[in-house]
Computed example of a mutant assay.
Amino acid sequence: MAKIAFLGLGVMGYPMAGHLQAAGHQVTVYNRTTAKAEAWSQEHGGSWAATPRQAAEGVDFVMACVGNDDDLRAVCQGADGAFVGMASGSVFVDHTTVSAKVTRELYAAAQTAGISFLDAPISGGQAGAENGALSVMCGGDEEAFDAAAPIVDAYARICRRIGASGAGQMTKMCNQIAIAGLVQGLSEALHFAEKAGLDSRAVVEVISQGAAGSWQMSNRYETMIEDHFEHGFAVDWMRKDLGICLDAANETGASLPVTALVDQFYKEVQNQGGGRWDTSSLLKRLRLLG
């Protein structure tokens, strides 16, 4: 069993840290809002720390699941950052979806500090985190990955190293690109069914068993039909991710016309007051358009 720090107790990090504690690891958590760290400690029996540095002192692994590039830099660097507290040879595993640029920046800083850094973004949503069934896509040194993979298994359905530093984040971009098109297609299908006067549930029952079937259809159609969008991955976060995708596409020369279009549809959802709605709210946008 390992000594682990977990930084960031949002809807994903809170249950992920719980799985680590339940697996028998010695877990210390940090969260920007101290009350949440205290609540996690009371629920799961682990300890909490006031700063990332304090949480990282004396541990084997530091896991992070925060908001964006700036949040990640804040928990890693500076006088109270985790890098200062980490011992030589320990491993930092970043589960945040951030740019490959900041990943490579922190990878280099970690090397200078004598520690390892893995980018390991996740997919599977809140349900995947709660059920310990996340998909984890990793970039970084193979030795660090081999050390961290058995730890990550506590909340992963699959954990795979894709390549060097940044490869995990680039793979997560592929994930978000695929999801954007799928959710828009599903939203249009349900919208069409409604306009045609069809029983949407019967339609999904049939088409989900054929080539149109997808995770999004199986897990989101019911709440979409019910016009319920107050769960899951928020539009604000999806737009952050799609912005990373589009920036990377400009750098690599990739053409992402559908992704760019769906990003603008999500911008319309934000303008409709739906920034905290989940990503399936693309259907809500179509309903509001009439």
Rank of each mutant, 00 (worst) to 15 (best):
Q21H: 05
V29Y: 03
A17H: 00
D119I: 04
D80T: 13
G8K: 01
T103N: 12
V102Q: 03
F6I: 00
T33N: 07
A87E: 15
A39C: 08
V29E: 03
V91W: 06
V102K: 10
S47T: 15
N68V: 01
K36N: 04
D70H: 13
A56S: 06
S116M: 10
A74L: 07
V11E: 15
E105I: 02
N68K: 07
A110G: 10
Q42P: 01
Y30L: 06
A22C: 10
G13A: 08
A87G: 12
V93W: 07
E43H: 13
A49S: 09
G46A: 05
A100L: 01
V84Q: 14
D69A: 02
S123R: 04
A35S: 15
A100I: 05
A50F: 08
V84G: 12
A74M: 09
A110H: 00
E43A: 15
A64C: 11
D70S: 15
S88N: 14
G46R: 04
Q26I: 03
G45Q: 02
V29P: 06
M63G: 08
A56M: 02
V75W: 08
L118M: 07
Y14C: 14
T103P: 06
V75A: 04
G124I: 11
H19R: 03
V11K: 15
Q126T: 14
Y14D: 15
Q111M: 11
G13H: 09
G24R: 10
A49K: 07
M63K: 04
T34M: 14
V91F: 02
V93M: 09
K101L: 13
L9Y: 03
A79R: 14
K101N: 13
A100N: 12
G78R: 07
T34G: 11
Y14V: 12
L118S: 09
V62H: 02
A55G: 08
A55C: 08
R73H: 11
G89K: 13
R73N: 08
L9C: 12
A17D: 06
T112G: 12
D94A: 13
G89D: 14
N31M: 04
I115G: 02
A22G: 11
G124W: 09
A23W: 09
G24A: 10
A37D: 01
Q26P: 04
A56I: 04
F117H: 08
T33Q: 00
D80I: 07
F61H: 09
S116D: 15
A39F: 03
K36S: 00
Y107N: 13
Y30F: 15
S99E: 09
